[in-house]
Amino acid sequence: MRDVISAPASGLDLGREYGHHQSPAIRAGGLIFCSGMVAVNPETGEREHGTVTSEARRIFENLKLLLESAGSSLDRIVQVHAMIYDRIEYDVLNRIYRQYVPDAPPARTVMSVQIEAGFKIMLDVIAAA
């Protein structure tokens, strides 16, 4: 059983907005696999470049919309790959990150990579359905 989770707000459909060939999320085997999320406005789909803090805040808000539309939530996240543009921002990431997963946080890996379209952070999430 493999279900496509459609975008909970039109701006979060990156396939339609930017031609990314991906579903927002897939539910399978009791888990929800989310596509890598970047900071876009959930209504308009416009990119919201900013600081690691502002981008992370937007991503978590969008992630909350996406997971809750699929019957899950931020506190059901199992694993996160947090990708940042420069590891010098590691502590900046941690400060905003802990606000959104304050208790029993998910397993996490942080890496420094090139992210699409000049973003500073992208989150890749697996959650319990």
């Binding site: 031609g19 890598g36 990708m83």
Partner: peptide, 23 residues
């Protein structure tokens, strides 16, 4: 985009969730 154009041929409908990054 050079990756994405070929990629879409292999997943014509309901594509998987995906993350792309430069490493």
């Amino acid at each position: 985009e050079n990756m994405n154009a070929v990629y879409r041929e292999f997943f014509p409908t309901d594509p998987p969730a995906r993350t792309v990054c430069g490493v």
